[in-house]
Design a protein around this nucleic acid. Structure first.
Lengths: 363, 363
DNA sequence: ATGAAAGCGCTAACAA
DNA sequence: TTGTTAGCGCTTTCAT
């Protein structure tokens, strides 16, 4: 007991002396300093800071603590508190910094994170291999991961990381077909239907559906959904479906298409629904070269796009706007549920969002 | 001595027992576990991990440690190590997530951070007040801050935060006139000169310089530099300077300008140099409405812009490309110097970068 | 070369 | 209610 006491006293005394002596030079203010100044113990300081439930602090003490904090310009050390609580209050956002949509997702993540008090760790270097990345996350004791994936490139190793590390994970636009992974997905069927409805109101005839695709991509779920929606819609409205597939890079095909439809006026303005945001600038460019005015000579619309990315286009493209900002927010909420409710089966693993019609001048 | 010993043994024994017993359920692997498995002490593990200078570890022990790390899937706890070393290896990136240029800066920051082993904490909520933000940074014991500022909005409170917190700080495009702050700035004079040179080679006459500005902005240093560069260039080439100031929102002024210059053909294609990226889409739009073809009827160029932001424009805009990605990288390097060399006066506080000519189709 | 031990700043369980 | 204490996982002297 004496020995024990001796150790503690020695410990603290030394500490206090050091503090007192070098406080000015090495300005690391701790909760201890605050406690000392406020004339309370460190636990009280901690209680005040965290509103620890079940522990009351008298009004005067509380104010004394707050006062001391202000005077000493004290800030909790998130690392130290994290070590105790096991939470880092930090989530990782992964995505390709080359992709402008990533910024919108970040905006959403950020907004929601502020709400929960999370901070965002950014790490989207696509060159970095996934195990390096996992190591990084594990080192920082990240509370969760959000990644912006691509519908057609589902990276298996991500799932593996999640399995191994046990870190809660939410994918945006990825893992649509892996039921265990939580993901935020766009309802592309609805997108196409609404686009067709819009165009149908404008012109009497149904649009040609143009599928842009990369050379040797196989059709992904999103593309399948869109195509089926188009065919179904045509069937329901007793129209002949007209589908065209164009490989990215095949300028000639675009030119042919444009020339063909711009002359073929069987009632109303010829119109085109494009499947994929990447195809739009290609269409615009060819139309520009051919001196066709989009929005006058041809109507054009995109079923997978964002308003923000096309605002400088002339004429402004009519789009089904994918709400990336909101998807970012949703991801954080989903992550939060995953973290708190442990294994509650209440949450569905797939969260669907709908694109919103943003009429422009092109249709 | 006995008491002391008793305490330590008790401490460690309990620890070991707990570990052994609950290792599966509470899977927090520590350096202690690694040490035990490799048959060494924790210090050796640490030495292996950090290549601690001046401390050699025999080859076999080192391999044993590495092996154990792999087997146990061990990852250092960055928080714990940070507490000892005083470094968090984390830098904060601040910027407006609404600004697409921010993404390019992030790309650069990221690239350079990978190199140094820093991680990025993102926090760009522009609504959040600056003292909240400072608190956040201080809590996380951030090693440095990079912020993407705007040339015409120098936020005084930022500087205050830096003073108060002592956290190394680098501004991108901000604080040009505050010599104490380290900032990365664009040489806008050079930008204008090179743009004029380029256009002069294309058409015989000097371009009109159009200054787009917000209603009640006062002229900032960048705008002053650009205007002066234009005037100087004209003088040196014995040309009559022609400057136009247009307030954002004044569509009529743009229309007048376009109509005026498109008819006024005194030799060569009439051409325009725009001061600011925001003005470009406005010019394009009016030209589109007037059915003037940029790149044929009028030449147009921008002295403050990015290639990436204009790639979908028709025709592609010729720009002086501001290298935001590189500026992000530079910011990290500058931060690093600030952190390592303490107060070395060797580093100039203002780092200048040059815009690069990216010819498009508009001039 | 290696290991013991101190202590970074905090929170939570417990004691008073 | 308030104060004491153990301990989070690590690095880093300091003895050996």
């Amino acid at each position: 007991m004496t020995a024990k006491h001796y150790i503690y006293i020695g410990y603290n005394t030394c500490y206090i002396l050091c503090r007192g002596a070098f406080n000015l030079s090495m300005k690391r203010v701790t909760s201890f300093d605050v406690a000392k100044r406020a004339g309370v113990s460190r636990s009280v300081v901690s209680a005040v800071l965290n509103d620890t439930p079940g522990i009351g602090v008298s009004q005067e003490k509380r104010e004394a603590v707050l006062e001391a904090i202000r005077e000493l310009n004290y800030h909790v050390d998130a690392r130290a508190s994290g070590m105790k609580t096991g939470k880092s209050f930090c989530i990782a956002a992964f995505g390709n910094t080359r992709n402008p949509l990533f910024l919108q997702v970040l905006e959403g993540i950020q907004r929601a994170c502020t709400e929960y008090g999370y901070h965002i760790l950014l790490s989207g270097d696509p060159n970095m291999d996934i195990s390096k990345l996992a190591d990084l996350y594990l080192q920082r004791r990240i509370d969760g991961i959000i990644s912006l994936d691509s519908v057609n490139a589902v990276d298996e190793s991500w799932a593996q990381v999640q399995k191994d590390s046990g870190i809660p994970f939410v994918s945006i636009e990825g893992f649509a077909e892996e039921s265990e992974v939580v993901s935020i997905l766009v309802n592309y069927k609805q997108s196409v239907v609404q686009a067709l409805t819009h165009m149908n109101e404008r012109v009497g005839i149904q649009p040609i559906y143009v599928i842009f695709r990369n050379e040797d991509d196989i059709e992904n779920w999103a593309e399948r959904d869109r195509r089926e929606a188009y065919l179904t819609w045509c069937e329901q409205h007793a129209r002949n479906p007209r589908v065209r597939v164009i490989t990215i890079g095949d300028e000639h095909a675009i030119m042919e298409l444009l020339q063909e439809i711009s002359t073929d006026k069987h009632g109303g303005v010829p119109s085109v629904l494009v499947n994929w945001s990447v195809g739009v600038p290609l269409m615009y460019r060819k139309a520009y070269e051919l001196r066709l005015r989009i929005g006058e000579d041809i109507f054009l619309m995109s079923a997978d796009n964002t308003k923000r990315n096309n605002q400088a286009m002339l004429p402004i493209l009519s789009v089904m706007d994918i709400p990336y900002v909101r998807m970012g927010e949703m991801a954080v909420h989903a992550l939060n549920e995953q973290m708190n409710q442990a294994k509650a089966p209440s949450i569905a693993n797939k969260l669907w969002v709908e694109a919103e019609l943003q009429p422009g001048e092109s249709s």
